[in-house]
Computed example of a mutant assay.
Amino acid sequence: MELNRRMLLGGAAATAGSLLMPQVAQANAAANAYFNGYEEDAGYQFRRTNFNRIDPVWRRQMVKYFSPEPPGTVVVDTSNHFLYWIWENNTALRYGVGVGREGFKWYGRARIDRKALWPRWVPPPEMLQRQPDLPRLVEGGAANNPLGPRALYLYRDGSDLGYRLHGTLEPWSIGHDVSSGCVRMFPEDVIDLYQRCPKGTAVLVLEHLGAGAG
């Protein structure tokens, strides 16, 4: 009886595994469709975004933008999932972003006081409490580093707020409320923004759209 029971359980597990395998393969194929090869950058590689799979609204583009903020300011519109880098003459360079999910949203003013090329990732204690299986440290350039090729660290009054503007391993998450408060960008976009924003750049995170965009 015990042998028959083991055989039955083993057969059930094998059947369940065989049923799951096509689903896993389909999910992997769907995720891989968002990538298009690899890009070399500063001695590391990242998976290049397949922008043919991305809704054009989330692609980096110049737009008309009316804001009282001075040129060179970063404005994050969390409601509509856009980040604006303010230019002159009521224009801005607009990027699609992913922002904090419910319970992890934040708003207000900050400043970029630190920038990192291929940053390492150290999950904050609060995140480790929620997800104790997370690694305690992921080195910069590692394939599983969620910050990607760049990170811009947000400070207020000299204190690290714990939030960053950074890349993502999940391009399909752009345009959604997905993070623990950080602002996610396509790897190509965070590289572009990193080059434009020196330390000291002012950042305004809006709860609601506080300026006019077109």
Results as ranks from 00 to 15, higher is better:
213 A>V: 14
213 A>E: 10
16 A>G: 10
187 P>E: 00
102 E>K: 12
159 S>Q: 02
80 N>V: 13
148 G>C: 07
214 G>V: 10
34 Y>E: 02
49 T>Q: 04
57 V>G: 02
130 R>N: 11
143 A>Y: 00
175 G>K: 06
191 I>H: 03
49 T>A: 07
89 N>D: 15
153 Y>K: 03
195 Q>I: 00
3 L>M: 13
36 N>Y: 04
170 E>C: 02
176 H>F: 10
202 A>G: 09
110 A>H: 02
207 E>Y: 14
146 P>K: 02
182 C>L: 12
50 N>K: 13
53 R>H: 11
139 E>N: 14
199 K>E: 06
51 F>N: 07
32 N>A: 14
171 P>T: 01
190 V>R: 01
192 D>V: 02
56 P>W: 06
38 Y>Q: 08
191 I>S: 05
110 A>F: 06
83 L>F: 04
155 Y>S: 07
44 Y>G: 00
195 Q>T: 01
125 P>I: 11
106 W>T: 14
123 P>L: 15
3 L>G: 10
140 G>H: 12
175 G>L: 07
78 T>F: 08
103 G>K: 11
96 G>N: 05
15 T>Y: 03
87 W>E: 05
185 M>P: 03
2 E>W: 03
35 F>C: 06
147 L>K: 03
48 R>N: 10
5 R>E: 01
182 C>W: 05
123 P>N: 15
81 H>R: 15
37 G>L: 13
165 L>V: 08
127 M>H: 13
42 A>R: 10
206 L>H: 00
35 F>V: 05
132 P>G: 10
197 C>I: 07
7 M>T: 05
120 R>L: 06
